[in-house]
């Protein structure tokens, strides 16, 4: 990519102007932010506003970023704060749909365990070889995004509130009006599903590399 063509040998990443002059990078980034914000806020307009605000801030200050990942880290931090604020303000307005949908996800990990509560024979978590190197592989990130988007929407929303926005339990419970035990059950399911998906599609697959 253009990174390798950059004249400066000392820069390991694209310089900030490349980041912002590359329309595809911005389009992709915006799309990713929008997907993330929409999932959290369940409201397209609010999501658009939050993304717009975070991006405008970044564009104003773009010279201070050392590369794309610095820029991206920064805009996502802003976006996370913006979403967290919106969610906190909104705690009184319950989305009744979410509660209904939650009920339908009741039995989704029964197939992982047998009647005595032990792992089904072919569902036992295996040892993951070299989990650290996955984050340097763009194919892995595609799998990760696919696994995330295959979670039931409520599980994905709550999982990302916890792990991505790093809200505490009580904040999530207030924002989506669920009990702590409900939250714990949801996170447990989301983690079971995600790890299964990652193992089935990445860590448990023989790769010739």
């Amino acid at each position: 990519m253009s990174d390798q063509l950059a004249p400066s040998a000392s820069a390991t990443e694209s310089n900030p102007e490349d980041s912002l002059q590359n329309p595809q990078f911005l389009v992709d980034l915006r799309q990713q932010m929008l997907r993330f914000a929409s999932l959290q806020l369940q409201d397209t307009q609010l999501a658009e506003d939050a993304v717009q605000e975070a991006l405008m801030g970044a564009l104003k200050n773009f010279r201070s970023f050392s590369g794309r990942s610095a820029l991206k880290t920064w805009v996502f931090a802003i976006l996370k704060n913006k979403i967290a604020d919106t969610l906190r303000q909104r705690q009184r307005f319950v989305d009744a749909d979410l509660l209904v949908r939650g009920d339908r996800e009741e039995h989704d990990h029964d197939e992982l365990f047998d009647q005595t509560g032990h792992w089904q024979k072919d569902e036992k978590p295996k040892r993951w070889a070299d989990p650290e190197s996955a984050i340097y592989d763009k194919h892995f990130w595609r799998i990760f995004e696919a696994c995330l988007s295959h979670l039931p929407s409520r599980q994905a929303q709550i999982f990302m509130m916890r792990e991505f926005i790093e809200l505490e339990s009580h904040e999530i419970c207030a924002a989506v009006e669920i009990s702590v035990s409900n939250l714990n059950v949801t996170l447990h399911r989301a983690r079971l599903r995600l790890r299964e998906c990652l193992e089935d599609n990445w860590f448990g697959v023989e790769k010739d590399r």
Partner: peptide, 17 residues
């Protein structure tokens, strides 16, 4: 999983070319 998700939040996919 937690490390991966945090890396994702910090622009992990953008760091690989």
């Amino acid at each position: 999983l937690r490390r991966i998700t945090q890396s994702y939040a910090q622009g992990g996919p953008e760091k690989v070319d």
